[in-house]
Design a protein around this nucleic acid. Structure first.
Lengths: 259, 259
DNA sequence: TCAAAAACGATCAAAATCCATCGCAAACGA
DNA sequence: TCGTTTGCGATGGATTTTGATCGTTTTTGA
């Protein structure tokens, strides 16, 4: 057997596999073998492990991302995880929207619920980087303005530097922002730096920033930080949010509303 | 480099079938077979599975969508008007795309056919103002960059001044442009000035401008003019295009290809 | 209504893919 | 140094998927 000068460590290799599947939505065993230069047996073993970890789902001939539409069951589950809470949060947020306003929604399932509530509000202007939200309102509803930018498949949002080109030219009254994690110590975080960047730009432009996050997000920390608690005017969450968390926020001057 | 026709993973193929049926409303087995390049037996088996999952409803000769949307009644009629011609035009256009290129697609049914052909081309970068094209490629395929801008419901495209903010920051090798009307005298026209504006910006930035228009568009004139015959490098149309029209264009130095 | 054409479903064989098992080599600790 | 562990590749049989064939059913058009 010929060894590479720099043998790739197994976890490294698995991470690459995961990334390839996430980016492409799917990957074939044969393609992975060629691009990683290991035997198919190794690829299969890796896929087996990744599947156990829930990172991918194997299918005959390769594997598909658990977060793409190809794997609808899982994706829907994620959307409907604590769906009632998210629905109530969205309804609470909806009450804050006044006639003729311009609002912003970022990606995420909570904001998607809010988008669905806007179908009859043709008086509003909606700015969003969420492809899903745009699709929901493709037929009727507010005037929709998309931010543009690179499509991030995993979240179905438009992210990156290009988004700011559009965002800098509009101003919204209220920005409703979902987040992956919110922590008293580490602030607001999401998984992707590009996503974080886009959120950042919006938070600066918006009249008011309203955070929508179910209690499951509390004290979660992800990779990329965005915004700042100081920039947040109001958090809407559910009743399961811990008292301590609420208090600390209120002490910092952030209003908290539990639905 | 010649790209070998790589076998597509089964879930991927089923998702494509589902998408085609969803936004076509219906699809014939024969069409699916041609477009996916598998046997009819496989198509039937896939339809059987999709029917069990409730995603489509089978009928003699093909399948129909279960999730019918209001808007599609209008939009899809147009998509399937002279669909075979558009399909062939798209296939012809596809041949022009070289590895690693950055291309642009605007809205319209012909360009949507082209978008569908790109699902295995993860080497490309696609810039588009078409929401439909983005949806088609939301799971896998090229890197997708959306232009942003105001959503024009009737065409499901992003249009207006905001688009230029993104477009000015990218440059594409080839722009494939659909149009509503093309006339020797009045040039290229579409129904909406905002749409025309976006097309204009792209045509200026693109390395080559390739016009995709079936013969039904010839000598049609709409409200808003965009671009210019001088900016067009190549027109791809179908065999029903009149000889006179071809000749006149060629005399002007525009290549014409009939599929 | 009837016959031709098209589409369908069942079946089977070929091909692709998967899985279990084995042996080898390197890394590690005693 | 030696035995153990871990990761990898290879082999062969099992499994899955696919495409082709053929008789049956449905649609079409006179």
């Amino acid at each position: 057997m010929i060894r590479e000068a720099q043998p790739v460590l197994a976890p490294q290799r698995r991470e690459r596999i995961r990334a390839m599947i996430r980016d492409g939505g799917v990957a074939r065993v044969e393609d992975l073998r060629k691009s990683l230069k290991v035997s198919v047996a190794t690829i299969r073993r890796d896929l087996e492990i990744l599947e156990e970890e829930g990172k991918v789902r194997r299918v005959h001939g390769g594997a598909v991302s658990t977060e793409s539409r190809l794997e609808e069951a899982v994706f829907e589950n994620k959307t409907h995880l604590s769906a009632p809470e998210k629905q109530r949060i969205a309804e609470e947020a909806y009450k804050l929207i006044e006639p003729e306003e311009a609002i912003y929604l970022n990606g995420g399932s909570t904001t998607l619920f809010l988008a669905r509530l806007l179908r009859d509000r043709s008086d509003l202007t909606l700015v969003t980087n969420s492809l899903q939200a745009a699709i929901e309102l493709a037929d009727s509803g507010p005037r929709v303005i998309l931010t543009g930018g690179e499509l991030r498949r995993i979240s179905q949002t438009m992210v990156g530097p290009l988004t700011s080109a559009v965002l800098e030219q509009v101003r919204v009254d209220k920005a409703f922002m979902g987040t992956m994690g919110m922590s008293l110590e580490h602030g607001l975080t999401t998984t992707d730096p590009n996503e974080a960047y886009s959120n950042d730009v919006v938070a600066k432009q918006a009249g008011k920033v309203i955070l929508l996050a179910d209690s499951g997000k509390a004290e979660k920390v992800c990779f990329a930080r965005f915004g700042d608690w100081n920039g947040v005017d109001l958090l809407i969450s559910d009743k399961n949010l811990s008292q301590d968390f609420c208090k600390s926020l209120r002490k910092r001057g952030i209003k908290v509303r539990l639905s």
